[in-house]
Design a protein around this nucleic acid. Structure first.
Lengths: 270, 270
DNA sequence: CCTAAACGCTTGTCCGGACAATTGGCGAGG
DNA sequence: CCTCGCCAATTGTCCGGACAAGCGTTTAGG
């Protein structure tokens, strides 16, 4: 591909050239009934994938690609946009277009439309608040909540039930930053996930959630609260909710009896 | 906003108008030091969010937006592209631009760059195959593997260890479709995740993964294999791997002793 | 009344051009 | 030798125009 196809003459360009090109492609058997920019994008992706443009190197500049393929800069840019959206290149003014990956990164998306989905509580579950109190971090709690000693949090203990079953499906200990105004009142009147309430009420944007799931053995008190057997297995899901700036805004620690709860996720490839 | 600002005159347009606009915005305190298309996109999103353009209704056509904001069609299209990428509108020729959602869907993405991340096995773990045999589905297995009775699968039992610890971190039972040519040989010589091998070797594209996690009690045999206590809690992670057409291509059922494994996920808001 | 062709509206594709913003690199001056 | 300012290269933004493609709608014909 070292030959540089010359720019088409003005007359050729004046009439929309795409149909002619498509005809060519069709007759050549390539059968690319796609817009030109998509063809270019596919070709660039193929070349990167083949190592023709190695990772770390620069792609030809936009103008060079224009000449190379005999197309306008808009079309080149549209193609490069696709390649960029595929995660293969990054672009910077003056520097140019750098190849950053050889193959599109495999990304599985968790189609979580709400934090509700993450928590997997059906709408009909109900929450029963056991206690709500203000706590000041000692060293241990400060480590858990990633703050300095002395910081104040609101601790909420609760049970969650489904209708018509006296046995709770989980017990949860939640910590919310006590610095939020009227947070105690809002917590009491809140029905759904705390994180959703925080977003709604305070305009906080939860940018990241870290979740860790573990199998544990139920202790005596937990078993009693959950109406389960002592030493029976349980699922412990600890979730940390972070703001955009990386500060922790909420932590919840939920314990589910093993026979009453299964955590299900679905990952869809992008 | 019923007044239709007239298109700027040719002279005004000849000199790039953006700086002037930015100046206006700045002096107005709106402080939108952003490209024009982004401003338009933000405004459209705000209006949709406010119900000014209700869900199900049509947005003004591109040409109408051109006149409304006094900008070119390219800029309008760039703005609409953003709004579409935000998931608020869908566009169709002749029909126009339809509002399909009032607020951007909250999407948390699990930045899983490989199935390795999902499995959370560090690179240094090693697999020890216990047995590998061909099985024919009876009714129970057919239900588990979502196939008809009589279908053949390859069943693989294995342990996974970290170096310098005789206690395995998990035992896994995997089922792979036996219809794949030479699958038994490929399984034996395979080191990493089976799903990755399937993609590599057979060009299979795994489109979806369903994962369910549960807390269970270790049985006698499992405890012995895992060198853990009988009745101690364990995490059971069952994963089903599906192809594009929805057929199951692999199932793996992993059991981790509760004290040796924590399942961690990180969700990042888009 | 029904069907099919023609029409025209709206988005999609592509062009060529102009200037802005950013930034790596070079050269002048200290 | 180092620093600062200028230059030039490259991508970003925006314009105006032309035609294509797809598809409701209308209309002509049966």
């Amino acid at each position: 591909m070292s030959r540089s196809s010359p720019l088409r003459s003005k007359d050729e360009r004046r009439v929309h050239a795409k149909p002619r090109i498509k005809q060519e492609r069709r007759s050549a058997g390539t059968a690319a009934d796609q817009p030109r920019y998509q063809q270019i994008a596919d070709e660039l992706i193929a070349r990167i994938s083949a190592g023709r443009y190695p990772v770390g190197e620069l792609l030809p500049t936009e103008m060079e690609l224009c000449k190379l393929y005999g197309i306008s800069r808009s079309t080149v840019r549209e193609a490069l946009r696709r390649v960029r959206d595929a995660g293969l290149i990054s672009r910077r003014r003056r520097t140019g277009t750098k190849v950053i990956a050889q193959t599109p990164p495999v990304i599985y998306r968790q189609p979580t439309n709400s934090i509700r989905d993450l928590l997997q509580y059906a709408d009909e579950t109900r929450i029963e608040i056991l206690s709500e109190k203000r706590v000041i971090c000692d060293a241990r709690l400060a480590a858990l909540l990633e703050c300095r000693e002395g910081h104040a949090w609101l601790r909420l203990d609760s049970l969650r039930r489904v209708p018509d079953d006296p046995r709770p499906i989980c017990m949860t200990t939640s910590y919310v930053d006590a610095g939020l105004p009227d947070i105690d009142k809002h917590l009491e009147s809140n029905a759904g996930p705390i994180s959703a309430m925080l977003e709604r009420t305070y305009g906080i944007r939860i940018a990241r959630i870290e979740q860790s799931i573990q199998a544990i053995r139920l202790g005596k008190q937990e078993a009693k609260l959950l109406r389960a057997d002592v030493d029976s297995p349980a699922l412990r899901a600890m979730r940390r909710y972070y703001r955009e700036d990386g500060t922790l805004i909420e932590l919840s620690d939920a314990i589910h009896p093993g026979d009453r709860f299964t955590y299900v996720t679905s990952l869809v490839r992008e």
